[in-house]
């Protein structure tokens, strides 16, 4: 244990939530390090100071104002009200979605993907033209490794 490791251990130690092993480590370090011992006391002092700081209480009209704001809410959407009536809204919605997807999959026209063999020369050329590696062929050609490969 060194001073730097205190950063990850000290808070739990001061909260009394460190494991027995961690506590022993910290105690050992504190016995040897006056700076960290002082820091521990000062942390406790800071915590005590923080307890002295009150926060203002909520105002008397807090609830009334909140009720006003709730009343001003637009009514919930229809689907959410429907979901509220169902015993298991998530399950019901999921089943509905599944059925819808099923219908869609069955009725949708199959997308016509061109078979690899059907690719005509023009398309093949365009595809090759777009491949960056081939565009940089001139660069690759100058590399020794490529020349070696070609030599083999």
């Amino acid at each position: 244990m060194n001073c730097q490791r205190m950063e990850s251990q000290l808070i739990a130690y001061l909260d009394g939530l460190a494991s027995a092993h961690e506590r022993r480590e910290v105690d050992q370090h504190l016995a040897a390090c006056a700076a960290c011992r002082a820091r521990v006391e000062e942390f406790r002092g800071v915590w005590k100071l923080l307890e002295e700081v009150p926060a203002p209480e909520p105002s008397a009209w807090f609830d009334a104002r909140l009720r006003q704001r709730i009343a001003a809410q637009p009514p919930p959407a229809l689907w959410s009200r429907l979901a509220g009536w169902l015993p298991q809204p998530r399950l019901a919605l999921a089943s509905l979605a599944l059925i819808a997807v099923g219908f869609w999959a069955a009725s949708a026209p199959r997308p016509s993907l061109p078979a690899p063999a059907a690719m005509n020369e023009q398309e093949e050329f365009r595809m090759i033209k777009n491949m960056q590696v081939l565009e940089n062929y001139e660069v690759l050609k100058d590399l020794d490794a490529v020349n070696e490969l070609q030599g083999n």
Binding site: L10, G16, L30, R44, V46
Partner: peptide, 30 residues
């Protein structure tokens, strides 16, 4: 740790008397 460390530095003038009141060792539990 970093937050309390910053507070410790910032509030040192208020904390110091408290610290000197505390006993040596610093092994009492929180």
């Amino acid at each position: 740790f970093r937050a309390y460390e910053a507070l410790r530095v910032e509030l040192a003038p208020l904390v110091a008397p408290e610290a000197s009141k505390g006993g040596p060792g610093g092994t009492t539990e929180g």
